[in-house]
């Protein structure tokens, strides 16, 4: 029983940590809109196939960077840049 309680507490802590971490990494459109003028901002559109071609909404300054080719394009950006990945 004690082990179960510990496991449960661990899972809640882990869930909360992931949530805080992901909240920090996810931004909404208003936050992005406020950042658009920033010179170090790079918007990467990681959509491919129909996800990209069927969508009418494409951010004008976005660079297409397929998620599957992450290893190729990730190295080309310096660490002082703010990378925003756009997937939907």
């Amino acid at each position: 029983m004690k082990q179960l309680v510990l496991l449960f507490a661990f899972m809640i802590t882990l869930g909360a940590a992931v949530n805080v971490w992901s909240d920090d990494l996810i931004m909404d459109k208003d936050a992005l809109n406020a950042m658009l003028a920033a010179p170090d901002l790079v918007i990467l559109d990681v959509r491919t196939g129909k996800d990209w071609s069927s969508s009418e909404f494409k951010i004008q300054s976005a660079v297409r960077a397929p998620a599957a080719e992450y290893a190729d394009w990730s190295a080309s950006y310096s660490k002082d840049k703010t990378l925003v990945l756009y997937c939907a």
Binding site: R47, T48, G49, K50, D51, P66
Partner: peptide, 9 residues
């Protein structure tokens, strides 16, 4: 996720 892949075309 086939629709999200270029190979669908």
């Amino acid at each position: 996720g086939l629709a999200g892949e270029d190979k669908l075309t």
